[in-house]
Each structure stands twice: as C-alpha cells, then as structure tokens.
Computed example of a mutant assay.
Amino acid sequence: MENTVTKPSIPVGISACLLGEKVRYDGGHKRSKYCLDVLSECFQFTPLCPEVSVGLSIPREPIRLVGSAEDPRVVGVKDPTLDVTDKLKEYADEVSRTHTDLCGYILMKGSPSCGMERVKIYHKNGMPNVAGSGVYAARFMKNNPALPVEEEARLNDAVLRENFIIRVFTYYNWRQEVMPAPTLHKVIQFHSRHKYQLMAHSYEGYKQLGKYLAGEASKQPLEDVLEKYILDLMTHLTKRATRKSHTNVLMHIMGYLKQDIDAQTKQDLVEAIEDYRTDKVNLVTPLTLLKHYLKRHGSEYIQSQVYLDPYPHQLGLRNYI
C-alpha cells in the first residue's frame, strides 16, 4: 500500500531561521518555502537556533570561524574577544541529550554555528583560510553519526533532496519497527524490506550488510548489532543513487515478474526502464508501470520492498530524478 500524508509525525530538527523566525544576526530570517509548504506536511519540525540559545542577542554582532579547519573558534567579527565556541559545543551536547526523538535535521547553509560544510574559516588577521563545518553542526553530527543531516540550500538539488528524505523515512522506520523491542529477527526483517533501497545507493553496502546479518551478527551482543547496522545502513544511503544503480534495481525487481507476464508486457517494461536509463524519462515512469504489474503478480516479499514507496507519493520526488 502506498504511503499517504496524514499529519506531521516525523520529528525533524531545523535551523529556526528557516521557519521564518527572526533570529539571525541582523534580525532577519531565511524562510524556506519548501520546508514550510511541502515538508511540513510529513515532518514535525523542531526549530533550534544555537546562537540565540547560547545567549547572543537579536540583532547581534556577526560571528565567524577563525583558526584551523580541525578546531576553529567562533568569535566576533568586530570584537574577537567574543568567543562562543565552547558554549555552542555544550549546546550541541544538550540538544543531543534532550532531542533523542529526532529522525533528521535541516541546517542553515554557511552559518559559523549551523553550516554543515563549506563554511568559511578565516586567519586571525581576517584573511580567508580554509572551509569547514559550523561548530555546533560539527559537534551535533559527531554526537549523532547515523542521523540524516542536510543543508536547506542543497534540497534544491532533486537527487540530494530525494536522498535526504529517503534517509529520514528509513531512520524513522527503524525507530518505529525495530527499536521499541529490538531483536535480531526484527533487524533481519527490516533489512529484508529495505534491501533494494540500499542496493540503489550502494551495491557494496547491500552485499556487506547482507553478509554481516547472515553471519557475524548472530555472534555479537544485540546492542552492538543495532549500533553497527543502523550506522552502516545510513552511511551507505548517503551515497547518491544514479540512473545506472536505479536501473539495476528496476531490472532485479522485474525479474520477479518474468514467469507471470507475457512477452509484450515484458518488452514494454524493458523499454520503459531503458528510456529511464538513457535520460528520456524520469524514475516515476518505469516505476509506475512496474508497480502496476507487481500489484497483480508480485509476491508478498517483492511487494513489501520499501524501494517501491519509500515516502508519501504526494511529495513527487521521483518526478524529477
């Protein structure tokens, strides 16, 4: 059955300025129309502004990263004696402790506190040095290595947008299906349903995790298995799926229909998949046709694959990749 949008249910952290809150250094905001008008239909946003939360005023003196990429300080642009580095790290630790329900996080690009990557770092003399991550974001991501994190600006890229939302829904599914009363059997069932989704992003990851669950996992403490599995899965899913990898998955899934469809139907499916591979149509075209025949002829196993409906179809993400 396809997912449907009901009410916001998936808890996702977000930089408060992206929800239109006037918390930026200049008293303004960076309202994200996509987050507010589209993603809010399925995400329950938790707005967070680390700069305000550590005591900086609105408006306030701008801050920037100074020093090395490995360990920059966050200091005032006009008054370098203003240093909120340690406070931002402590706040990241606090959010990690108090918001354990989060299944994703959307950050503000370029921020010395919230930027995920490519944030300017300066020498003490004010000259540009290298680029890195905002101090709060870096600490929070270190504390939560499996959690899906993305910058709002990168959601303008259709592939990155779909990638992030798939990771959020996968992480949410894990929290709902496995973690309330975890067992190795539940992990294996979860993996079985997510196999083709994983294959689309990383064939190597698909093989490695399958091998791990079939062997070594049964000899390890369950707590270790849970930690390793979800971290490895979410890491593999960060790899961008391509037309080539999607084509491979579509052909694998079509293999479950070969004995039940006639030659002409098979040819129609092959042509639709080839049109997708050669960039003539987007993913929704062959997938819609494939799902039509799977509903009639597909086994329970193949119909249960999350790849077929990884998120609410109303989001329309596969219309653009």
Score class of each variant (00 low, 15 high):
M199W: 05
H201R: 12
S202K: 09
Y203M: 01
E204C: 11
Y206N: 03
K207V: 11
L209D: 02
G210W: 02
G210L: 05
G210E: 11
K211C: 15
K211D: 03
Y212H: 03
A214G: 02
G215Q: 04
S218W: 05
S218E: 08
S218R: 08
Q220H: 07
P221N: 05
P221F: 01
L222A: 05
L222I: 02
E223S: 15
L226K: 07
E227D: 11
Y229L: 09
Y229S: 12
I230D: 15
I230R: 04
I230N: 09
L231E: 15
L231Y: 01
D232R: 06
M234D: 12
T235E: 00
L237A: 07
K239V: 06
A241Q: 00
T242N: 12
R243D: 00
K244I: 07
S245V: 06
T247D: 06
N248P: 01
N248C: 13
N248E: 12
V249P: 01
V249R: 02
V249N: 05
V249G: 11
L250P: 04
M251E: 07
H252N: 09
H252D: 10
K258V: 00
Q259V: 04
D260C: 07
I261W: 06
D262L: 01
D262P: 10
D262Q: 06
A263Y: 13
Q264P: 08
Q264R: 03
